[in-house]
């Protein structure tokens, strides 16, 4: 026990040291806290370039680091979008329902050990959360033009203008966590800088979406469709369980 004590404690210290070293990198990628400058929409937007930019953004949005919490109801976890253990609920504020709040297991920092719930520091306190109940910002089951519309429109993106949306993606520390997820978690398909660039390019070109696409205020075409998407995903996960459980670096929460 004493040995484990020292190992775990020093491990956490190493984790903090690593986080401290990573912070300047994150700050540069985000443009620096307090120095964020939103991209202005061009007077001659290039619609094609804007659509191409969203195609890059979409690759990140649909990655488990993002979509695991942008879901209709309870969060998912891990690189395979599995059901979350334990079976937590969103709650009004997106921080869970007592007695199982996000902060019960998600502390202020990532553990250096695999399979531990990730952590997030918000003013010295556990900051892990998902979108609140009044604005779920669910894009699970959506892709392409449908996802573009839901992300772009203030009615479904948390009331954000394009500038606010860009600021969220560029500087929010939970978004940035996606690129510092701790051990045994897959990184998004683009680096943070390579993600920020198409966000900026998309906005410069008016953040276009397919205008024929209706705005979907629930995930999927309807709630029933969203539920069906969810169940389909679970079936896929269940069918791949033997492969997944054999993976040497399969991650948990």
């Amino acid at each position: 026990m004493a040995s484990r004590t020292r190992t775990s404690s020093s491990g956490l210290r190493r984790c903090i040291a690593m986080s401290a070293m990573a912070l300047p990198i994150a700050a540069v990628a985000a443009g620096g806290a307090g120095t964020f400058q939103p991209t202005q929409v061009s007077v001659t937007p290039d619609r094609s370039a804007g659509l191409q930019a969203f195609a890059q953004i979409e690759r990140v949005l649909l990655h488990p680091r993002c979509v695991n919490c942008h879901v209709p109801e309870a969060p998912l976890q891990g690189d395979f979008k599995r059901m979350h253990y334990p079976p937590v609920q969103r709650g009004v504020d997106g921080k869970g329902v007592a007695p199982l709040n996000c902060a019960t297991c998600h502390s202020t920092q990532n553990s250096p050990l695999a399979h531990a719930p990730p952590g997030l520091d918000t003013n010295g306190q556990p900051g892990w959360h998902m979108p609140p109940a009044k604005m779920k910002m669910s894009w699970f089951g959506l892709s392409g033009p449908a996802l573009c519309k839901v992300v772009r429109e203030p009615k479904t993106n948390g009331g954000r203008t394009l500038a606010m949306l860009q600021e969220h993606m560029a500087t929010d520390h939970l978004v940035a966590w996606g690129w510092q997820p701790g051990p045994s978690r897959e990184l998004p398909p683009l680096t943070k800088a390579a993600f920020d660039e198409p966000v900026s390019m998309g906005i410069r070109n008016g953040a276009p979406c397919d205008t024929r696409e209706p705005l979907r205020t629930s995930a999927g075409r309807t709630r029933a469709a969203a539920n069906e998407d969810f169940l389909t995903n679970l079936r896929v996960v269940a069918e791949s369980t033997t492969v997944v459980s054999g993976a040497p670096n399969g991650s948990q929460p």
Binding site: S107, T108, Q109
Partner: peptide, 29 residues
């Protein structure tokens, strides 16, 4: 001490009445 990664619940304590996993909770928090 159970798992050391906030998964088993053996280290559960209450902070301001809410349960927390003590094994991953820095004392500064």
């Amino acid at each position: 001490f159970g798992c050391g990664i906030a998964v088993c619940g053996a280290c559960t304590v209450h902070v301001d009445g809410r349960q927390r996993r003590a094994c991953v909770t820095p004392v500064s928090s």
